[in-house]
Lab assay of single mutants.
Amino acid sequence: TRVETATETAWISLVTALHLVLGLSAVLGLLLLRWQFPAHYRRLRHALW
């Protein structure tokens, strides 16, 4: 049971790290898009909202 718990903890930390990385890359990508294509971003936002 001790090994299982350790594996579970490792998986949880791995998944958390993955989610953090994905979230950060998504935010960075959005910022980059907004910085590179302001007109396109505004049009996209206008279409979405």
Rank of each mutant, 00 (worst) to 15 (best):
G29W: 06
L20C: 13
L18Q: 04
L22V: 11
A39T: 15
A10H: 14
L44Y: 06
V3W: 01
R43C: 08
R45T: 09
A39I: 10
A26Y: 03
R45H: 07
L22W: 06
Y41W: 13
W11Y: 13
T9C: 06
V3E: 00
L28K: 04
L44C: 08
T1Y: 10
W49N: 15
L31C: 15
T9N: 13
S13R: 13
L24C: 11
H19F: 04
L32P: 06
L44K: 02
H40P: 15
L22H: 04
A47S: 08
H40W: 08
L20N: 00
S25D: 02
L22Y: 00
P38H: 09
A39S: 13
H40I: 07
A39L: 13
Q36G: 15
A17N: 01
V27L: 13
T1H: 14
G29F: 13
G29S: 13
T1L: 13
W11M: 09
T7I: 12
E4C: 10
E8H: 01
A10K: 12
L48Q: 02
L33P: 05
L22R: 01
P38K: 14
L32E: 05
S25M: 09
R42G: 12
F37S: 03
S13I: 11
E4G: 08
A26C: 14
L14V: 11
W35Q: 15
H19G: 03
A39F: 10
H19R: 01
A17C: 14
V27G: 09
H19L: 02
R42A: 11
E8T: 08
L28A: 03
L18H: 04
L31W: 14
R2T: 14
E4S: 09
W11P: 04
A26I: 11
T9S: 14
V21L: 11
H46N: 11
L44F: 12
S13D: 06
L31D: 00
T1Q: 13
L44E: 01
A17F: 09
E4L: 10
G29I: 10
Y41K: 03
L24F: 13
A26K: 04
L30P: 03
R43W: 09
T7A: 11
G23K: 01
T16R: 04
E8L: 04
T16S: 14
A47F: 08
L44A: 07
